[in-house]
Design a protein around this nucleic acid. Sequence first.
DNA 1: CGCGACGTTGATTTGCCTCAACGATTGTGG
DNA 2: CCACAATCGTTGAGGCAAATCAACGTCGCG
Lengths: 187, 187
Amino acid sequence: MINHIKKLLPLDKLEEEVLLSKITFKKLKRRQFLLQEGDVCRHYNFIVEGCMRMYMVDEKGTEHNLQFGEKNWWITDIGSFHSDVPTQLFIDALEPSEVLQIKKEDLIFIYTHFPKIDRYFRVLIENAFIKMQARVLQNISATAEEKYLTFLKDYPNLSNRISQIQIASYIGVTPEFLSKVRRSLMK
Amino acid sequence: MINHIKKLLPLDKLEEEVLLSKITFKKLKRRQFLLQEGDVCRHYNFIVEGCMRMYMVDEKGTEHNLQFGEKNWWITDIGSFHSDVPTQLFIDALEPSEVLQIKKEDLIFIYTHFPKIDRYFRVLIENAFIKMQARVLQNISATAEEKYLTFLKDYPNLSNRISQIQIASYIGVTPEFLSKVRRSLMK
DNA sequence: CGCGACGTTGATTTGCCTCAACGATTGTGG
DNA sequence: CCACAATCGTTGAGGCAAATCAACGTCGCG
């Protein structure tokens, strides 16, 4: 199952061995937490199997989904990870899941000794940043219906697997209103 | 004026010389474009003086501000830059401005020969990503008033210099409504 | 001086939320 | 394996936040 990582970038023997030696494996039941508000995020997490989410809970107790992740995706609170600051976010499993974890000191070690992997992570963040940027644009310019359609287009796999409550929370509307949007789309 | 970059990370003589040799200077009048929809974004742009914005224009002709930039900030459409794809964004100057530009091939050259600078740009993107993430959270969870107050807190310099039309477009409300929010805040 | 941006205000409309209720499905413990 | 609880998706009535449209005074600038 660790081959998943190798698919993403070509590695030589040494790089592969070092990565393998630094990785730990973790199994999560449905609803189990990988990160909770107040924790410091100490790992980069790579999802091997299942489906997860990262979200915030506001003062009223409402959850707001920041990101989903499935097989072959990274899911990490980069802010907390890099600044060693307690996170405001939660990460939990929407389905039984399996993740690979790399600790911060190991990642830094890898960064400094293997520029190729360093560059891989830069590209990773660049792509994540580009997506976030597109999402901000949607948020400030689109209607709920447009946001929903964009979500379906961008995440066709996820849209079948996760509940509308989760989708509603991701695009920033209530589940009731999302239901009405869907109804008007069916017409 | 090129010292601005050096303040951001300690450079040795060689790194400094290489950077200097790869940089070009550009002066912009108020309202002049640095990038327009349909262009491919070919430079990383570092603002030396003035104030700029990056924005999208929707089908109705409404502008939506994605990012502002002032002295010592980078402003670039990273998506278009890295994929050589025509951008959907505009970058123009809100005030007379001066920028330093690095071409893509030069940046790649620097990345491969100077890992330290490579890492500097990774950190740059990480920080930008973290901010974008926080902004998405605001977008899906906060009211217009909260978004406005957050903007004032995050960009105290900018809020004095740029018009409320620009701020409204950044937080995703109409200028009329922002005016009403401000009125109710004065109480 | 006159024009065009800007900020503001008011009246009206609309998109989305809140709350409450209801079947249908899922899941869980006895 | 069944019974009960919990979660989910949906619907409707009513309310509020924000958009739209129109009008107006102010200011900076050519």
